[in-house]
Amino acid sequence: MSLLTVFQSWFSPLGHFWSYAIAYFLEAVVGLILAALSLIIMIYLFRKYMARLQRRIGPNRVGKYGLLQLIADAMKLMGKEVIFPARRDDLPYRVAPLLVIFGLFAAFFIIPYGNIPYFGSLTISHSDVTVILLFAFMAIMPIGEVLAGISSKNKYSLTGAMRAVAKDISFEVPMMLSIIAVVLMSSARTANALNLQSIITSQVIPYGILEPLGIFVFFVATVARASHTPFDLGESESELVSGFSTEYTGLRFGLFYMGLFGSIFLGSLILSVFYLGGYHGPFAGSIGWVWLMVRAFILVLIFFTVWLAMPRIRIDKFMDLGWKYLLPISFINLVISGVLTLGFGW
């Protein structure tokens, strides 16, 4: 029993094709709402957590305990005057924030969320190659950032975009190599090694314990993907004003902002799916979704602490890190996991 079949049974009079189409659509909406809800909770949590680390109180004026602060901020962003730079490259300029947010939400559909009470499984995509799909969608986001930087016709934005490209190339390779190690391990256990769901079910021992190097590389790469300090090279507030999003105002800027928080959340979801056993836990049959969220939120807090404690790394040092340290480490990790899988049969 899953959410999909429940929806499908509601619309079964429409015939096989239409009922499944509507059911997939509705399930996507439900998944999106849950993801957006967790995103809002996450931003609220970030503000409160940051405030307490810095010995402040955080938002507490709008609504009880400042719960409505984010909605107020969104309204403020919507109400702002939209300023277009005069010499912009129009189409890429408009498309860029949408690309970022599209890549983010498309990636959210791929994640297997596990079970929710009463309805059952809340896994939207049932493709057999979800790993490839997931990283394909995630690869859309940097395109948006680069387009934004180039089309703004601003020197700060351009420098930010150049940095973003350099950053993306140097961390994507180790990231993919560490994922290949995971796929390699799961291929020994299941037939569908490229399916996220079977990766989760094959994790009797979470892969993070078997591959400590892999989880380290992936963690660093996720910080770089989300581009917050220490790796916020594309934006780097104190150097490039706001990097590629310098020329954006109002809701378009809000989309970039959401892209930042969304990719932290997405990163922690992916990290918990690949390395920490996803929705495994007691009563996973009914509340698996909760276990995934608990894992993700603990990871999110770790990401926030990294964000708040670290200074920004210099771009050439980051390239060094990516190519001289992360890449060899991920190769070693690949070899180790191969030995573990084939040699010991773990």
């Binding site: 405030a51 307490r52 680390l53 810095q54 010995r55 402040r56 109180i57 602490t305 708040l308 404690a309």
Partner: peptide
Amino acid sequence: MGMLGKNLLRKPVT
């Protein structure tokens, strides 16, 4: 990061 975490338990000064 652990040193930062200590401050979670201290009272806000706002």
